[in-house]
Structure formats: structure tokens, C-alpha cells
Design a protein around this nucleic acid. Structure first.
Length: 541
DNA sequence: CACCCCCGCGCG
DNA sequence: AAAGCGCGCGGGGGTG
């Protein structure tokens, strides 16, 4: 059954059973403080799909109260998908344009910001009910109602996962992180000062360039100084500097690497984003602020913390609690596999059957080396026309005409100003009316080409995670339940009691197969994972 | 001072 | 200095 939850102000909350004929059959009003208890009772008694405007606005208080829900429908996220899929319908403005950014931990948020983001509070019950009915009508009238329902369910499950990861946090070993920083940068400096190692490197750079006042953090200053030293560079990128023959290259590249580490994940980041866990025998926790559906293609984004850019060099600091383990799983070559399934390309499916799809291309004599196979495949997915990828393209098209036709077709549609959609029906926004003035058709074509694959891969990942979440909930009750703690496009980390790690690993594998079946039915495409059971994320590099 | 853009680099 | 997609983030430096 479906129950709509609608907070009315700070004090009360309405619960409405949604009848099969889309009309509410029973409405109950509770004090807001009772919400978690009421939700928990329903969860115990029957299988419920909760329907609400905004998961991020409701679920954290349930989690705080120790209550987890099985399924939901997040109307705000569904609206974002449906408004693009059915642009002809008359969608009222509900103030849902912006993604809700949660406050970083410990941050004092100005009240005005809260007022701007807490837009769902102002909606009336009637508006939410009307929205729900509009959405159902749009789904039913759409090109693929079944697929769209799966997408909306998966997107909503993602919102639950994101809320739970924020609550549970990624276990983080502060001491390991601090050791790494000290090792690479030197001891923690006074606020605003450069760490010793960086200061030394800056000195070497200034010396090699005979520029005693150079600020290596200033791109204009650095570019000017390099050119004045007779170095023919157009930028200060490490790519370009790396091919120079000059004694400044080594210290400068090292400086850039370490300066990046300091500014992105230094002591400041650690203080701000890694906080004590809820229990004394826990490690600290990094709580990523994921934004489900934050990317046009349907990938997640982040808003603060940079969880999706966690440098590999720091992954050693991600460590399970004592008595717990991390199960790290990533989907091997998910984008080409998804493409093979979309195109029913049995030849490409067969190449990926044994495990490594790129190696499969080599074994079949299509490409000479694995590196070549990867470059060619990524080139096809991204729309490469020149260089090595462009040169290899004809061989790929000849070997896999069905799969390559899917992305070529998406590119042609985009070049002509059309919209394309993913397997489950997420649609590109239309190009703005004046797009040709600012963007070439080729640019738009590369975007739509990649959209269908990146977006469908994101759908697979959502189904995978939703299925993992469902299976883990069935495995054990809280608080000893294994739980998702990290997500990175095609990779997950589950934090699990050590004695359940093997079981968790096999559930994660089964979930991957199930995700493929949910999206594509009986497909010839395999969705293998690389799975590792470790104490530290760094062990998987 | 707040705001915005550019650049460069981390991730997939 | 990217060929070839999608992002977030921080620092510098300019503008109002």
C-alpha cells in the first residue's frame, strides 16, 4: 500500500492512505514527534511505499529516531525526471527548482538560506496530492510506463541511500589521514601558512625561474614567469609542464600535486568534514552530502565535502570500525556493458562474458592491446574523432555495428537539436532556443551520445544500490546491520560486521545481476564486479 | 565586502 | 594543451 506523508508546519504531520483509484481513503493527523513511531508501526505491519515531497526533508529525523523505511517515492525527484520526459504537460511551479543542499556539519546556516531551501514546507496537502496525480498521469501516458516506474522507484531508493549514508557516515581513521599529510607535506602549519615541504618546493621553483617573488599558486603569475624564462607554454597545466625539459619541472609538478592535496583534503578539510562517530568504539565519520539526480545524466552530485573526488592517495584513511570490515565492489566496464544491453549486441555481450570486456576485444582480434581497446571504447562513448581513438573507431564500428549504432544515432539526434533518452526514460533537457549561437552541433552531439550511456549506467547503478540496500535490510536488524557507506558512480562500499562480510559480498554480486535483469530483462550481457573484503579502502588500489 | 569567472585537477 | 563525456571544489583575481 502507499501512504502519503505530509508535514504541516513544525508540529503536525498528515498521513494519507492512497487508494487504488488515486483518491485518499483515510487521513490521520499526528504530532510531528510521533512520526517515527507511526512509520515504524506501519513498516512492521505491512509492506508500505511511502510517498512524500522530499526524502531529504523527512528521512533524517526518522533515522535519528532509529527508524528505516523500506521503499518510498520522492515526488520532488520524480518531478525533475517527468518534467523533462513530458514537457508538454502543465506542471505547476512548486518551488522545486533547486536541489536541497544540506548544511555541512557544524556549520551555522543563516536563516535566510533555510527559508530558501525548505520550500516543501510551504506546499499544501492538496498541492502534493495533485502533484502525485499529475505524475501518475504523465507516467501512464508516456512511452514506457513500466520502465519509467522503475526509474522513479530507483531514483527514490537512491534518495534513501543518500540519507542513510549521510547519517551512518564513511568510517575514517583520522590518525592515518594525519600521518599521510605529515609525511607528504610536513607538520601541520599555523593557519594560513604553507607547510614546510610546500614552502621548500616553492623556493626551488622560484630559484629555477629566477623569480624571487613568484606565487606558484597564482596561475597568471606562474604563466608569465614560465614564459619569461623562455618556456613556450600556453597554460600551467601539469600536462603541458610535464613535457618541458627544464629543471623547474620536477619541483613544480610536485608543488602542484601537494598544493592540491592541501587545499582539497588537508587539515582544514579533515577538521570540517571528519567528525567523531556516535559511539566511542567507532572511528570518526566522513558524511558526504550526496545530491541524488544532481547531474543531468542522472548521476549523483555532491554539495560540499567532495566525496566523488576522494583522491586515491587518501583512501588508506577509510577504515572499518574494529570488528567490522569494508566490502568494496566496483562494476567492471559498466558503460560498454550497458551499451551492449541497450543495443542487444550479442557480439559485444560475448566479449564481456568472461570478465574483462577490454581483454575480450583483444582475444577476439579486434584490438591489439587492452589499452587500445579501452581508448577505442571510451572514444566511441565520448565521441572522439581524432587521435588514437579516432583512428581505432572504424574497427570498433565494423566489429560491433549494433552497439556503435546506438551512440551514433544519439549523436546525430543531438547534432540536429533533438533530445535523447536513457533506457528507462530520463530525457535530456532540450537545447535552449538560441543554442546554435553558442554551441556547435558537434558539441551537442557529443553530449547526447554520452548521455544515453552515462545515464543508463547511472540507472543500472541506482537499481544495483537499491537492490543491495533491500538485501542488507533482510540480512540483519539494526544496529548490527551491514550498510552502504560510499557510492562513486559504479562503485560501492558496504560497512559490515566482520562475520557477515562473505555473505554481504555475495549479496552485492547477486544485486548486480538483479539490476541487469530489472533494466534489460533476459539479457546476454554480464555485469561482473570486482569485490574485495578489506579493513581499508586503500587496500583495493 | 560579496559575487562571479577562470583555471587547474581530483574523480568516474 | 587537448584530442573525447559528466561533475565539484578551491584559489586567484577581477568587478561592483
Amino acid at each position: 500500500m502507499e501512504i502519503l506523508v505530509h508535514p504541516a508546519g513544525e508540529q503536525t504531520v498528515h498521513l494519507l492512505e492512497l487508494g487504488t483509484e488515486q483518491r485518499p481513503t483515510a487521513q490521520v493527523t499526528h504530532p510531528r514527534a510521533d512520526l517515527a513511531r507511526v512509520v515504524a508501526r506501519h513498516e512492521r505491519e505491512q509492506s508500505v511505499r511511502w510517498v512524500w515531497a522530499d526524502t531529504a526533508a523527512l528521512v533524517p529525523e526518522l533515522i535519528d529516531a532509529g527508524v528505516r523505511v523500506g521503499r518510498c517515492l520522492d515526488l520532488r525527484l520524480c518531478r525533475a525526471i517527468l518534467a523533462h520526459a513530458a514537457p508538454g504537460r502543465d506542471w505547476p511551479d512548486l518551488g522545486w527548482t533547486a536541489v536541497t543542499a544540506a548544511a555541512p556539519p557544524g556549520e551555522v546556516v543563516p536563516p535566510t538560506l533555510w527559508e530558501e531551501t525548505a520550500t516543501t514546507q510551504t506546499l499544501s496537502l492538496a498541492e502534493v496530492l495533485a502533484e502525485r496525480e499529475l505524475q501518475q498521469a504523465a507516467v501512464a501516458a508516456g512511452a514506457g510506463p513500466e520502465r519509467m516506474r522503475l526509474l522513479l522507484a530507483a531514483e527514490s531508493a537512491g534518495a534513501l541511500v543518500a540519507a542513510e549514508i549521510a547519517a551512518d557516515g564513511l568510517p575514517w581513521d583520522r590518525a592515518v589521514h594525519e600521518e599521510l599529510l605529515t609525511e607528504m607535506l610536513g607538520p601541520r602549519p599555523a593557519a594560513g601558512a604553507r607547510p614546510a615541504r610546500l614552502e621548500r618546493l616553492a623556493g626551488q621553483v622560484r630559484e629555477h625561474l629566477a623569480a624571487p617573488t613568484l606565487n606558484p599558486d597564482s596561475q597568471p603569475d606562474l604563466l608569465r614567469t614560465l614564459r619569461r624564462s623562455g618556456l613556450d607554454v600556453q597554460s600551467t597545466s601539469k600536462w603541458e609542464i610535464g613535457r618541458l625539459d627544464h629543471p623547474v619541472v620536477a619541483p613544480l609538478l610536485e608543488y602542484k600535486k601537494l598544493a592540491r592535496l592541501l587545499s582539497a583534503n588537508g587539515w582544514g578539510w579533515l577538521d570540517h568534514w571528519v567528525l567523531p562517530g556516535t559511539s566511542p568504539d567507532h572511528r570518526h565519520r566522513f558524511r558526504p552530502d550526496y545530491v541524488p539526480g544532481g547531474v543531468v545524466t542522472g548521476r549523483w552530485a555532491t554539495s560540499g565535502g567532495g566525496a566523488l573526488q576522494l583522491p586515491k592517495s587518501l583512501r588508506r584513511a577509510v577504515r572499518a570500525d574494529p570488528g567490522w570490515r569494508l566490502v568494496v565492489a566496483d562494476a567492471a566496464q559498466i558503460e560498454p556493458r550497458v551499451l551492449a544491453a541497450m543495443a542487444s549486441d550479442d557480439a559485444l555481450a560475448a566479449a564481456g562474458q568472461a570478465g574483462d570486456l577490454y581483454q575480450g576485444l583483444v582475444d577476439r582480434g579486434i584490438m591489439a592491446t587492452r589499452a587500445e581497446a579501452k581508448v577505442a571504447m571510451l572514444g566511441a562513448l565520448y565521441g572522439a574523432t581524432t587521435g588514437e581513438a579516432g583512428r581505432l573507431m572504424p574497427r570498433l564500428i565494423r566489429a560491433y555495428p549494433r552497439a556503435t549504432a546506438v551512440v551514433e544515432e544519439a549523436a546525430r539526434t543531438g547534432e540536429a537539436g533533438g533530445t535523447v533518452h536513457t533506457w528507462l526514460g530520463r530525457t535530456t533537457p532540450p537545447p535552449p532556443p538560441s543554442w546554435r549561437e553558442r554551441q556547435s552541433g558537434r558539441d551537442r552531439g557529443r553530449f547526447t551520445r554520452n548521455f544515453v550511456v552515462q545515464g543508463t549506467a547511472a540507472e543500472w547503478a541506482l537499481c544495483w544500490m537499491g537492490e543491495i540496500r533491500r538485501r542488507l535490510a533482510a540480512l540483519a536488524p539494526l544496529p548490527e546491520r551491514a550498510h552502504l557507506v560510499f557510492f562513486l558512480h559504479d562503485e560501492v562500499i558496504v560497512h559490515t560486521p566482520a562475520d557477515m562480510a562473505d555473505q554481504v559480498a555475495s549479496e552485492i554480486r547477486a544485486a548486480a545481476t538483479e539490476a541487469g535483469r530489472l533494466l534489460f530483462g533476459a539479457t546476454a550481457v554480464a555485469f561482473p564486479l570486482d569485490v574485495a573484503i578489506v579493513d581499508s579502502y586503500g587496500e583495493t588500489d
